[in-house]
């Protein structure tokens, strides 16, 4: 581990702690929902981070197909894995909030359904990576990564045609939406903390993927020399 990585980890830990204090002690209790609303400070940052990582996966996949660098493929893999993890957090924290507020765990509403479909697409990406063999994995995965990303707007259009039960976008959702100033502060701190955490994970996974590859090559070379 490099010094930079350690320093980055320390800052992320502090930010997460500070974000936690913001979300649990400083942000006011929501008027109608009560304390349950505080899960929002984790739900929303996770969602944004997950979507961002899927976009990173798309860019890295495209970059791989153009330039064929190991780095691009490692980044695509890392972004997809961490993105799926954060998307899983979104899908778990959502129902925990929905149960007391809506009275149901799940509903086939537009945003929930499209997030689930997105999750399915990127899980299938990881499944392909797991089952494909040999040096062709990066190309196949990159192709699927691009397919998945191109599918996102179509999924969104298709599913929006159903009526929406998810709360209208709280941020930038038109009249009557909007957050109290202190809630905003909590959201932003947690967003920063989660983004840092995601970078940390992607970074670690990226280095690990590259190391794995280097190890494999060294092994093949050693085997060749032994013969």
């Amino acid at each position: 581990m490099t010094k930079l990585y350690k320093a980055f980890s320390a800052v992320t830990a502090l930010l997460l702690l500070y974000g936690f204090c913001q979300a649990w002690y400083i942000a006011p209790t929501e008027a109608t929902m009560g304390n349950v609303q505080r899960i929002f400070y984790y739900h929303l940052p996770s969602a944004w981070v997950a979507f961002l990582l899927f976009f990173v996966n798309f860019l890295a996949s495209a970059w791989y197909l153009i330039r064929r660098t190991d780095g691009a493929d490692a980044l695509a893999l890392a972004a997809a894995e961490v993105g799926v993890s954060f998307c899983t957090i979104v899908l778990i924290t959502g129902p925990i909030w929905a149960r007391p507020i809506w009275g149901i765990w799940w509903t086939w509403d537009a945003r929930l359904t499209s997030t689930l479909v997105l999750w399915l697409i990127y899980v299938s990406y990881l499944v392909l990576r797991h089952y494909a063999t040999g040096g062709q994995v990066p190309v196949l995965a990159a192709a699927l990564g691009i397919f998945g990303f191109v599918d996102v707007p179509i999924v969104y259009m298709a599913i929006r045609w159903f009526r929406t039960q998810h709360p209208q976008p709280v941020i930038g959702g038109g009249q009557g939406s909007g957050l109290d100033h202190t809630m905003w502060v909590a959201v932003l701190w947690n967003l920063a903390a989660f983004a840092m955490l995601a970078v940390l994970f992607v970074w670690a996974r990226y280095r690990q993927a590259l190391a794995e590859r280097a190890l494999e090559e060294a092994y093949i070379q050693a085997e060749g020399e032994a013969q």
Partner: peptide, 13 residues
């Protein structure tokens, strides 16, 4: 088994 696993999610819309 791989084909439906990657085809179905993308084909949902």
């Amino acid at each position: 088994i791989m084909l439906p696993l990657i085809l179905f999610p993308i084909s949902i819309p």
